[in-house]
Design a protein around this nucleic acid. Structure first.
Lengths: 223, 223
DNA sequence: CATGTGCACATTGTACACAATATGCAAACG
DNA sequence: CGTTTGCATATTGTGTACAATGTGCACATG
């Protein structure tokens, strides 16, 4: 069916496409992945699909129960409480390993951070800017493995659980944290920035939990 | 061929067995994994084997080039330089997240550390004790995801590269570090212990590089 | 009416067959 | 003599068939 011109294998492509779909919320947390349907949907047979599923499962994006199917991993408060501190430690390390941040990087960080708070941007976009900010922060640490690891964990933790509860991170405190961190970096106080960053992620656990509780309450009201 | 009584799937079992083999050095870094041979060796068909391989690849234990096969991941100086700091940050986090270490855990740590230096133990065993020490250190941090993550990275970094260059970590400085860390933990100074631990791993990069250079020199002499 | 049992169906797991690609060698060519 | 081209062979990638297991419902039974 496919003419196989690519250098990448079907399973690899499927893995990446599925990953994107999960991150975009097309397959939300808790959704069951029916092999036959998904295979048909992507136009491949079950064999490469299953190989991709195995990889994603190993990434922590899927959970698997033998003979009962695969589920997109939940991202509940418990998961956040486990992952956010890990991200804090890893990004802090990346900041410490980075040298002096060049002016253009610093202004990019400021710029992106400013856009997070700009009025009129959709919550989804705001969330995207937040992601971009963190990505820029660690991009030049010189440890590709670390970057990849951070990326994977952010992928797990960044998805919205609880049935498309939108509204994410208006985060008045969050952008203030970001600004403070950039300021430290401008002064070449990377260690201080790292410490702030770690606290930022740890605070995030409570922030997300609070925000979700609010969203759940609103959800109930509108029913 | 198999009566399939187990609750775990063949692919999962194969993944774990292969993982053990790789960690034990039965498949040393750089070894090519021929699918047909390995499948025959483990008594399964290629399908579940390939699924397992995909998982291990995602773990970073294997590298893959389309149509050219899979290789057990190298663990050269570059890899060590990337992974050791990550392990340092993660284990430091685990120590900080742990509460007060109970006396029995502290004496276990002391005990295991003592065995590392005991004369007459094989290098392999010594290495095993070192692993056990670090495992005990993080076991009660209360973050299973973190423990799993540490375990996986230790799996990658703990393998001996460069053709079974044995002799590992006599580490006179290493056990001294361990002792100092336990002392800090006894005083409930977890943050100090965490900082020491991070330095311990960072120093490890140079130690391993040095040790390997020596081993390589000896290798050449005996040829 | 509640509960348990067994069968039909759906879905996942495994094996195998075939297709696509890489590799090594031998012969042709300059 | 070195280089290149083309084929034979080995290995990996994908599709498909079949086996094993879980699920839900109808029906019997107390």
């Amino acid at each position: 069916m496919n003419t196989q011109v690519s250098r990448r294998t079907t399973a690899q492509q499927v893995l990446e496409r599925l990953r994107e779909h999960i991150l975009d919320g097309d397959y939300p947390p808790g959704a069951k992945l029916d092999e036959t349907s998904v295979a048909k949907e992507l136009g491949v047979s079950r064999t490469p699909l299953r190989e991709a599923l195995f990889g994603l499962e190993r990434d922590g994006l899927l959970t698997h129960e033998p003979f009962r199917g695969r589920i997109v991993a939940r991202n509940d408060d418990a998961a956040v409480a486990e992952i956010f501190p890990i991200l804090g430690a890893l990004e802090a390390l990346a900041v410490r390993m980075s040298g002096a941040y060049p002016p253009e990087t610093l202004s990019k960080l400021d710029d992106v951070n400013r856009r997070i708070t700009e009025p009129g941007v959709s919550p989804g976009l705001r969330h995207g800017f937040d992601q971009a900010w963190h990505q820029t922060l660690v991009a030049d640490c010189g440890n590709p493995r670390l970057i990849e690891l951070i990326e994977r964990h952010r992928a797990i933790a960044a998805r919205h659980d609880g049935g498309e509860a939108r509204g994410m991170a208006d985060a008045p405190g969050s952008t203030a944290d970001h600004a403070e961190i950039v300021e430290a970096l401008r002064d070449r106080r990377n260690d201080d920035a790292a410490a702030l960053l770690e606290r930022h992620w740890n605070d995030g656990v409570a922030v997300v939990a609070e925000w979700r509780a609010q969203a759940a309450k609103q959800e109930k009201k509108s029913t």
